[in-house]
Design a protein around this nucleic acid. Structure first.
Lengths: 356, 356
DNA sequence: TTGAAAGCGTTACCAG
DNA sequence: CTGGTAACGCTTTCAA
């Protein structure tokens, strides 16, 4: 008992010292303002009832003490952390730094904080899920895939999830995505329409859902148009890999195809460089090369890649909204929103200019 | 009283229904395991004393109920949120998505979660600071600048801060940075050494500390070497701006300088494209162009930019360590760690090959 | 090693 | 509109 009293006194003494003094609480403010603690709490809430007089007194005391409501304590009692988890994996959308920034800003505007989780590989989800649950995030926005079992765990906890550019075939989950298949169809149509007859496809990593979608879209459309001369190689979305893939493609076919469809812009750029530098091919005179994404580099004059641009802003906006809606109203059923990309006719491909 | 009982019963009923049932707490686990709640708490702690028997019983009960310790509640009592704030601004290190991912991973490995704050402009710090404080983050890692007053607020709250690639002249703050001036000196030396006599400088945004450092470094070294023919224009770190700046430069001088020093790689690439495309200059035969950063695009074959690469991995690692050390030991004094970059001699500049 | 009880800083409910 | 009091789910003494 005595010890306790001494400690308390000591802490108070330190207030002006360099020791780690305690931060002001609503009790301190209440005391200084001569009101109840509940009153302080109410003044710092949105739809609370407090007289002007009360408000002023409390506010004055509050900023004299540098008081700030403790969001952690608030979360404990309200059962709402006001935090969402955003999961990205190393390989995914890193080509879009904007994605992350925009998401964070959208959430921020709506009073939601972002707890960031970055996976080395898409598989490292186990511990991340554990952490998200321990921190009681209100929702999850993920650009990485979860296993069905993990998904079940999360759904059991009634925690809303939105997938970014990923979705599960059988499972009914919310997701916002760019219509990859449609985009690839456009690209294939353009190329075939311009007379290209032999194709190389540079796909992405085997475990990338996006890559699979894109490849499938391209292959289906090619088949539909009766093109049979198609060779496929696979890379990891990186520039170096793009170069290697181009070489592999030629080695595999014996000669360059008339057109190359890369799973993303960065690999397309790798292909262009390899074509020019190592094989002395003129792009697009000797060979057409197209990508996907519409990243900044694709617009560099040296490449000017023909590609499909993802509507990143609308997608992030939509994803944030979907998640927040589901946090506020858990009964909402899952929803998939697919956005069309924008075809960009760069000079990396020989296309018909009179296209109607 | 009666109402309370009914509610509790109802909640229990819902356990298997679709309603939002409550998550298991340590009390639930304790009850099922037939032990005290404190015991459960101890089992889930690191250096706690618990018999094997106890451990097993608790664990069994815990994962039957899907129990996970509530990190929010823990934070409230331990006065440690185990979260750090990471602040980035739109323009800064977005050219390094890796920075963010690596930081997050370093923290993650040390059991620290990342609360992400993204600023639209570097100035939007006010509300962000408010939020960080409300969430009681244990520390702050920022790639954006704070005003001296904001800094004082944070220091008053005894919350450790580490600046990434930024620092304050007078203030004594912790920071990890790449030695921008040294890097620029290297570039200038290389260029002058190879005989370049007239220079254009493309600086970044006026409020970017990094840009100012780089510009200063270049100007000082040029002056030191007796070069007086120097023209400066300013952009915003973007590709388009790089192109515009190159044009402005030539307009301002009347003719192209022999070498252009851009504040970052992306603008250097813009300069190269503009030089080639619009002014029909050969790089590096007619003009040398150098950048800074060592981003991925700088290695594209079409550019192969001579630049200084920042040791991103060591910097992020160091930054995370510094912050964590200061969280664990608040008495540690501020420290600046400056890393040297790596000179990369690309073919965008005409350099002496016999350099010793 | 274990259990009881006292906080941590809020919000929520209920009288006044 | 205001104040008292009970949670929220944990960690941390302190006795046993």
């Amino acid at each position: 008992m005595k010890t306790l009293a001494v400690n308390k006194a000591a802490k108070t003494m330190e207030k002006n010292g360099k020791g780690a003094r305690k931060r002001a609480t609503s009790y301190d403010v209440a005391e200084l303002a001569g009101v109840s603690q509940s009153a302080v709490s109410r003044v710092f809430q949105d739809g609370a009832s407090a007289s002007k007089e009360m408000r002023n007194r409390v506010m004055a005391a509050a900023d004299k003490l540098g008081y700030r409501p403790n969001a952690i304590a608030r979360g404990l009692i309200t059962q709402r952390s006001n935090m969402v988890a955003v999961v990205i994996s190393k390989m995914t959308n890193l080509y879009y730094p904007e994605v992350l920034v925009q998401l964070t800003q959208h959430f921020s505007e709506r009073g939601v904080r972002v707890l960031l989780f970055a996976l080395e590989r898409e598989g490292d989800t186990a511990t991340v899920i554990e952490q998200m649950l321990q921190y009681r995030v209100d929702g999850i926005l993920t650009a990485a895939m979860f296993t069905p079992e993990q998904l079940r765990t999360l759904q059991n906890e009634d925690i809303p999830i939105v997938f970014y550019n990923r979705t599960l075939k059988d499972q009914l989950v919310s997701s916002v995505l760019c219509d990859q298949q449609e985009g690839e169809r456009w690209l294939v149509d353009e190329l075939v329409n311009a007379g290209h007859k032999s194709f190389g496809i540079v796909e992405g990593p085997a475990d990338s859902v996006v890559s699979i979608e894109r490849k499938t879209g391209a292959l289906n459309e090619l088949a539909e148009l009766g093109i049979t001369d198609v060779t496929t190689v696979s890379g990891d979305y990186g520039y170096e890999t793009g170069k290697e893939c181009f070489a592999k493609l030629i080695q595999k076919r014996g000669s360059p195809p008339e057109a190359v469809i890369a799973a993303n812009d960065v690999m397309a750029i790798g292909c262009i460089d390899e074509a020019r530098e190592h094989f002395r091919l003129k792009v697009p005179d000797d060979i057409s090369i197209v990508g996907f994404d519409g990243v900044g580099q694709a617009r560099y004059a040296a490449y000017d890649v023909t590609t499909v641009r993802q509507p990143v802003h609308r997608m992030t906006e939509s994803a944030a909204s979907m998640l927040i809606e589901r946090i506020e109203n858990p009964e909402l059923s899952p929803e998939k929103r697919a956005f069309s990309g924008t075809l960009i006719r760069g000079s990396s491909a020989r296309l018909r200019s009179d296209d109607s």
